[in-house]
Design a protein around this nucleic acid. Sequence first.
DNA 1: CGGTTAATTGACCCACTTCAAGCGCGGTGG
DNA 2: CCACCGCGCTTGAAGTGGGTCAATTAACCG
Lengths: 244, 244
Amino acid sequence: MIDEDLLSALFNRLGQRDDLGPAERQALCEAAGDVRTISAGRDISRLGERPKTSTLLSHGLTARYNLLEDGGRQITAFHIAGDFVDLHGFLLKTMDHGVRAMSECTVVSFPHPALVRITEQFPHLTRMLWLATLLDSAIHRQWLVTKGRMTALNQMAHLLCEHLLRAKVVGIAVGNRFPFPITQADLADALGISSVHVNRTLQELRSLELVEWEDGWVTIRYEAGLRRLAEFDDTYLHLRQEPR
Amino acid sequence: MIDEDLLSALFNRLGQRDDLGPAERQALCEAAGDVRTISAGRDISRLGERPKTSTLLSHGLTARYNLLEDGGRQITAFHIAGDFVDLHGFLLKTMDHGVRAMSECTVVSFPHPALVRITEQFPHLTRMLWLATLLDSAIHRQWLVTKGRMTALNQMAHLLCEHLLRAKVVGIAVGNRFPFPITQADLADALGISSVHVNRTLQELRSLELVEWEDGWVTIRYEAGLRRLAEFDDTYLHLRQEPR
DNA sequence: CGGTTAATTGACCCACTTCAAGCGCGGTGG
DNA sequence: CCACCGCGCTTGAAGTGGGTCAATTAACCG
């Protein structure tokens, strides 16, 4: 059975939404398979694969992405410690996107048969895992809104507000700073804009004295202003603790 | 207990992904609460609400939407017969978007306590309901890809390919025709473009002899061509029947 | 010190927006 | 039965956010 430390970010994340009992924590520890380290730039999963485990990110940053015929790429999600990168693979069975390690990552695998057992024996824990995928989904919807109806500047501001909050929840933020080790080209693929425009937009955020971004660390200098710019409302992250 | 007919589209949709046993079908029928008709333009659910039931769409068309400060609107999903419009409300507890009836709709409500009971007594059915929300999520991701990296023309083509297939799955398509009773302004809010541009883009799809759109019905005239234009690959709809 | 990758900048271009006006049609009230 | 209204669709013209191309600089690395 694995060390509970590896799951602490997950416990933080789920615990922020509802209490997890000791039996449930133990069930998760027992369901865990092997622990691996994956180096930056490697794919954790590829389009079309049929995974037999789901992968919890214990440390690092990953991205879900799809490629287009012209070689373009769209990143549809980032994941940090405490996130499952492909829990949906448990039931979807076939990956409809790739998952790439954007930094060195530590991951814990959960064999699908063990997850089936959880659904048979731990209804509340099952709902919490289901919830974890619903939170992903809520973030997708929010990205659709910002991508569809906001300028690059607002969109980028929104992404940074979101990540600050997510980083705080799992305890990897340091004050208003959090790690975000991606290139401007990666960010462009997430926002659906060109890397040239990312560069100019970032400069604007800097000149507005809202954000700094150095050596893979983002500092939010003026959170209230950034939130206003992004029309950020954290409802969609569902951070209330309540019976689920 | 309600008439099984009201759930037939749901059975079609789930049954396309895995077998549902008689006991599971019956459990769903027993979990159902009241049946209502909602007239076009009405909200089924609003931002910030805390629903006590989840709503299955048995007939009609609905849209999830978010509003922006400037009065703009982004539609993040359409739902047709057999789709739950807010199954995620079961665990998210608070709605992070509105749901609007785009046509007259027949809906079946499922009280959340009944869904809790399903998670306690029917693990496989629970996984199938979970799957239903994962399919929503997969569609969100696909929209992110098309919205981020495709032109309005390709995006619109993609949406129509998607809806043709979804309509076929639940049996509301007639050949290559399906109902889609929305205005061009609604479509603009879904694609994240202006209604003027929707109009011009639709004209182009028509002039390419790929699509017709009259009286709320879409006819796909040349599906292969439309798919090529949209780079449409149905993997993300996960239409294979297999153990889940 | 060459080689590579990321960040930056300038110049020009285009997909899509905005604004504004006109049109077709079903619904309604007199 | 018709005049009018409102909504959705259509079209034109002008403006802009962001794209593309291409070159330069900066940082790192063996």
